[in-house]
């Protein structure tokens, strides 16, 4: 069942007379519980695609359906509600609040999300149950990224949007994080969408979307994606 559908979506940025088409008549259909990788060079439109899906931006043309609901016409407050209920974000920089402990960083979504999960459970799921009272500065990069994944998951979203989640990590820690994200798709049924430059990550995806100049260049399903351990890092 398609959880996300892009129907002829375009996003045009205008600056005076200059016009930039960041997305150009994009059509996409993404299924629930899949591990999806979006590949493409800088400026191809990957981040714009993620912004649209994350409710951070709206298309100038076309329709985006998430769980059958059109999010392309929502107001700013409705988009905030959508973000609170349906999507989680993970970025290359971990974006933890330095004044809060690990558990508080995760638990803050309880004030925002309508159906949050247990913060302790999420930290256990990412293997950080022994670090809950530490501050972000006391953790390694990989641990901080796992906290940010726990925070994104604690909202109990349908979709997890990850923008270069392993970009700042060494390969060993990157593998750990990817294994975690993959298990979220396989075990928890979450739809994981990863935007990256790293071609290797694509080998473990259920679907690989290649973007170039604001257009979908290819959208291929992989019947037999590799396990994280099988990928040559």
């Amino acid at each position: 069942m398609a959880i996300v559908e892009f129907r002829d979506v375009s996003r045009v940025y205008r600056n005076g007379e200059h016009e930039q088409r960041a997305l150009d008549h994009v059509n996409l259909s993404l299924e629930e519980g899949q591990f999806i990788v979006v590949l493409g060079p800088s400026g191809a439109g990957k981040s714009t695609l993620l912004n649209m899906l994350g409710g951070l931006d709206s298309p100038t043309e076309g329709t985006i359906l998430v769980n059958g609901k059109d999010i392309s016409t929502l107001s700013a407050d409705e988009l905030a509600e959508y973000r609170a209920a349906s999507v989680g974000f993970v970025f290359q920089s971990y974006n933890l609040i330095p004044t809060l402990t690990v558990i508080e960083n995760v638990a803050l979504v309880k004030e925002i999300a309508p159906n949050p999960l247990s913060s302790h459970d999420m930290l256990r799921a990412v293997g950080l149950e022994d670090h809950i009272h530490q501050f972000p500065a006391e953790l390694s990069g990989g641990e901080q990224q796992r906290v940010s994944i726990a925070r994104a998951l604690a909202k109990n979203p349908h979709i997890l949007l990850c923008d270069e989640p392993t970009g700042a990590l060494d390969s060993e820690t990157g593998v750990l994080v990817l294994r975690l994200l993959l298990s979220m798709a396989r075990d928890m049924g979450k739809t994981i969408i990863i935007v990256t430059h790293n071609q290797n990550i694509a080998r473990m995806a259920d679907m690989v979307i290649r973007v170039k100049s604001g257009r979908i260049q290819s959208c291929e399903k992989q019947e037999h994606p590799l396990a994280v351990e099988e990928v040559d890092w």
């Binding site: 994350g54 951070l56 700013a76 407050d77 905030a80 509600e81 959508y82 973000r83 609170a84 209920a85 974000f89 974006n95 933890l96 609040i97 004044t99 803050l108 979504v109 004030e111 925002i112 999300a113 925070r151 909202k155």
Partner: peptide, 15 residues
């Protein structure tokens, strides 16, 4: 960044 995290998590401008 802190406010951006909260906005991204779904906090509205009013909140």
């Amino acid at each position: 960044r802190e406010f951006a995290v909260l906005r991204l998590a779904g906090m509205s401008r009013t909140m």
